[in-house]
Design a protein around this nucleic acid. Structure first.
Length: 501
RNA sequence: GCUCGGUUCGUCUAGUGGCCUAGGACGCUGCCCUCUCACGGCGGUAACACGGGUUCAAAUCCCGUACCGAGUACCA
């Protein structure tokens, strides 16, 4: 029997979910799900920054996690045995832990001034020596320390780091990394009012929640020895660590909202990506199943995921590949699934642009699926394909120019096809196709010569769904009307151009 | 500055001493299929950062250099 695995993701709800953070969340989730019943994924909110951790931001963050499909077993909304899951409500736990540290002699009050600290640091840097905090109050006896604090002297609480030996981080990704204790320096764990700092709060939370595997970004590696020291001081088991390589933007720079349009998960949702595809794509940044498999349905992803296979080096996110992968997922969906995804996108995420929305909503999801499922890579591409159905009918400049170019031939084709279609008993896909192909034969023209003018005339676009599908969606009346009026307009244009030629 | 980590095609990656004249994928691109678009098929393009070792044999192990990144807060 395997021992239970408990992992967590602890975002600070500052509004958006960065793709790098999303991948961290995903890897934690995959790790837990890989172990099935034995795995627990905890979501904890680090909302100590009161300014930015508004209820709206928290809701927004949770909405994004739900969209991505990273369901949590314990955390906001679902509760769990280690409540509360909001850092802002856990101050009791921190003060208890802090008292323990004081009692065991692992923490002390440091009465340094900021000026003194800054000067020390500057001096070390000037001398090209590593800066290590040397605590003046390190060996102050507790009574004196307490007296000075009671007298109102400013202080911070520091952790007493061993001055000898090394602390080694056993990492599932990086292997072992040793840190000299003497170079760590006594770091601050809490402010005078008892409010904890990140390294301390994090360890207390993870220990309380019995987290067994800490999977997080590489940017935390340097914090890890400090955290290990805290675990040990608290007498808690040290979890296993896995530090993930950084995720960079396509230009090799850090991901930023400004430079990268889809640098956060909301933007992907807005653009009409499928959650399963995003999970697949994100998983492939820094990890691979075997170097061959690109498309991984969720079950396969969960089954194949192995944190020890993640790479050590940073990766740039490849948006082109993500888009391609999304197209693969969208095409692999059943019609029902595609419609569900499209409907979800339209109601939850579609941009509030009137023209765009009009095209998106012109027909129901099922009809849209038949027209464009095989053509689009993201849901946001759908409206452009459907815009030909929107009234009033208009030509794009390009489409009219291309139609005009077909000249006499175009007129002949349109005249002929209009008659052929008018004669049709049933306006169905197969009868439409037969009539259109019949036109080719009757006129002894290649399909390309025949279908192009019809497409331009009926849709007013150069890019559209399949021809018979388009005419079918348009309906008999509108199709014939558009064909006839385009024929008239075209023949007028041809007549006008002849004298000049 | 210091500490730590990293370095295979443009990008994501496979690769743990011989199977590698380095494989797959995206991208770009030629041809084919084809009613546009998309899909699909067959090709092409292009990489082991550099320099030293170790070894019969190195992308793989060791050392150095270069470059990139993270951390270096009473931020997280």
């Amino acid at each position: 029997m395997t021992s239970p695995v408990r992992v967590r993701f602890a975002p600070s709800p500052t509004g958006t979910l960065h793709l790098g953070s999303a991948r961290s969340a995903l890897f934690n989730w995959l790790y837990a799900r890989h172990f099935g019943e034995q795995g627990t994924y905890v979501l904890r909110i680090e909302d100590t920054d009161q300014e930015r951790s508004t209820p709206e931001n928290v809701d927004q963050a949770l909405k994004v996690f739900r969209w991505l499909g990273l369901d949590w077993d314990e955390g906001p909304g679902v509760g769990g045995p280690h409540e509360p899951y909001f850092q802002s409500q856990r101050s009791d736990a921190y003060s208890r832990a802090l008292e323990e540290l004081f009692a065991s002699g692992h923490a002390y009050r440091a009465f340094d001034t900021k000026e003194q600290l800054a000067a020390d640091r500057a001096e070390a840097e000037a001398a090209k020596r590593p800066y290590v905090y040397v605590g003046a109050g390190r060996d102050l006896d507790p009574a004196t320390s307490k007296a000075r604090a009671d007298a109102g002297e400013a202080f911070s609480v520091r952790f007493k780091v061993p001055t000898t030996g090394t602390t080694v981080v056993h990492d599932m990704v990086l292997g072992d990394t040793a840190f000299e204790n003497a170079l760590i320096g006594d770091f601050v764990v809490a402010r005078a009012d008892g409010s904890p700092l990140y390294n301390f709060a994090n360890v207390v939370d993870d220990a309380d929640m019995e987290i067994t595997h800490v999977i997080r970004g590489n940017d935390h590696l340097n914090n890890t020895p400090k955290q290990i020291l805290i675990y040990e001081a608290l007498g808690k088991p040290v979890p296993a660590f896995a530090h993930l390589p950084m995720v960079l933007g396509p230009d090799g720079a850090k991901l930023s909202k400004r430079r990268h349009h889809t640098s956060n998960v909301e933007q992907l949702a807005l653009a009409g990506y499928a959650p399963a595809a995003v999970r697949n794509g994100l998983a492939l940044v820094g990890w691979s199943k075997d170097g061959e498999t690109e498309y991984l349905a969720s079950d396969d992803l969960i089954a194949a995921f192995d944190v020890t296979r993640v790479k050590k080096s940073a990766a740039q996110i490849d948006y082109k590949k993500l888009e391609w992968l999304n197209g693969e997922h969208l095409r692999a969906l059943s019609v029902e699934e595609w419609v569900a995804g499209y409907d979800a996108w339209r109601t939850e995420w579609m941009p509030a642009d009137a023209e765009f929305a009009a095209a998106a909503d012109i027909i129901d999801g099922r009809a849209a699926a038949e027209l464009v499922q095989e053509k689009v890579a993201t849901f946001s591409e759908v409206p452009a394909y459907l815009s030909f159905l929107v009234e009033p009918f208009t030509f794009t400049d390009d489409a009219w120019a291309r139609l005009e170019k077909t000249g006499e031939v175009g007129v002949t084709v349109l005249t002929h096809v209009t008659a052929a279609l008018e004669a049709l008993d049933a306006w169905e896909l197969d009868s439409l196709e037969a009539a259109l192909r019949g036109t080719c034969e009757a006129l002894e023209l290649k399909p390309g010569k025949v279908f192009s003018p019809i497409r331009f005339a009926a849709t007013g676009r150069t890019i559209a769904p399949g021809l018979w599908e388009s005419l079918h969606a348009l309906g008999r009346e509108r199709s014939l009307e558009r064909l006839a009026s385009a024929r008239d307009r075209l023949s007028a244009a041809v007549a006008a151009s002849v004298p000049q030629a």
